[in-house]
């Protein structure tokens, strides 16, 4: 069985570090790869003594297997896999987590250079504030939240989106008064292509049932802690306080929830299938973004970044 190479996505459960997820996948893959049929032992010629004519011993050339290459002597054939991770998820966050095996690690770099947006579902709870903005942290204060309505929340969200849109234009390094900027804007491709602070491209309220609420956030260059802080600040803006109960990534670039493999599906066959089904998507995306930077003409493809997947 050949070692797979490429990119695939898994669903990382909350409460587990991403390194543990990667290690678990690596051990599962290695055990399956090593359990497969090994190569036959190489043979070599040795001159072994055998009783010859008239009672003397003579040497007879015989083929004997080289025991030094036996799997019990040499050890397992595959000892480690090169597995790289895409954009990380911290321990408390869950969701789509991209991993690369072997040659796929090069694609991870390309994918990083594409600066694609990611989508999150963030759960919040009004009335509390903690030191690390999550619901498990140390309680700092308690507030009332009766005055908060859906309209007030959405007004704040609109303000956030507006401010971030300005930042997006600023960091994308494109002169807004050019034909190029117009063409990019029509295709929805304006985004920073270098380092930038976290930028939120779209945010909307999915569910509002005080004290709980749920937001969908599309963003670039974010960390999960930044999103928790954002929930905290929304709480403050609404003259209350809020903690983040859940951060769940529903889309990472081109990888959606449907592509993500659950823990029970982590085996060689499923991973090979996942790599196969995702490779065209990844190729097309890299071609489109990085090909554009090289100055070649853009392929006519529409970009559905905002609201691509919210299952």
């Amino acid at each position: 069985m050949a070692v797979p190479a490429g990119l695939f996505a898994v669903y990382k459960p909350a409460g587990v570090a991403w390194t543990r997820v990667r290690a678990a996948l690596e051990t599962r893959l290695l055990s399956e790869l090593n359990a497969g049929p090994g190569r036959p032992l190489p043979q070599r010629v040795r001159f072994l003594p055998a009783p010859g004519r008239d009672g003397t011993t003579e040497l007879v050339p015989t083929m004997v297997p080289v025991l030094a290459q036996h799997p019990l002597v040499r050890g397992p054939r595959f000892r480690r896999l090169k597995m790289g991770a895409g954009h990380r998820l911290d321990v408390k966050a869950s969701g789509v987590f991209v991993l690369g095996i072997g040659e796929g690690n090069k694609l991870l770099t390309d994918l990083y250079n594409c600066h694609l947006s990611r989508a999150y579902t963030v759960g919040g709870l009004f009335g509390k504030a903690t030191d690390d903005f999550s619901d498990t942290g140390k309680l700092v204060e308690k507030t009332t939240f009766d005055h908060i309505t859906r309209e007030k929340l959405e007004r704040i969200l609109a303000v956030i989106q507006g401010a971030n849109h300005k930042a997006l234009l600023m960091y994308s390094n494109i002169d807004m008064k050019t034909q190029e900027a117009y063409e990019l804007a029509v295709k929805g491709l304006i985004r920073p292509m270098g380092k930038s602070p976290p930028i939120i491209t779209a945010v909307r309220c999915l569910q509002f049932a005080p004290p709980e609420f749920q937001l969908e956030i599309h963003c670039l260059h974010e960390t999960q802690q930044y999103l928790r802080k954002m929930v905290h600040e929304i709480g403050l803006e609404l003259k209350s306080s809020a903690v983040c109960t859940q951060v769940r990534r529903t889309r990472d670039g081109v990888f959606t929830l449907d592509d993500a493999l659950l823990r029970s599906q982590w085996n060689l066959q499923n991973i090979c299938n996942a790599i196969w089904s995702c490779q065209f998507k990844v190729q097309a995306e890299i071609e489109r973004t990085l090909g554009h930077e090289d100055g070649s003409d853009l392929p006519q493809l529409d970009v559905g970044t905002a609201g691509a997947a919210d299952s």
């Binding site: 025991l67 030094a68 036996h70 019990l72 002597v73 040499r74 050890g75 397992p76």
Partner: peptide, 24 residues
């Protein structure tokens, strides 16, 4: 490693045939 000696030692060869994982 025992890999260097296994082809020259009857004992090791027999242990391998018995199923002992010398690499362990």
């Amino acid at each position: 490693t025992l890999q260097d000696y296994v082809d020259h030692s009857e004992t090791l060869a027999k242990l391998v045939h018995l199923g002992v994982d010398l690499s362990q």
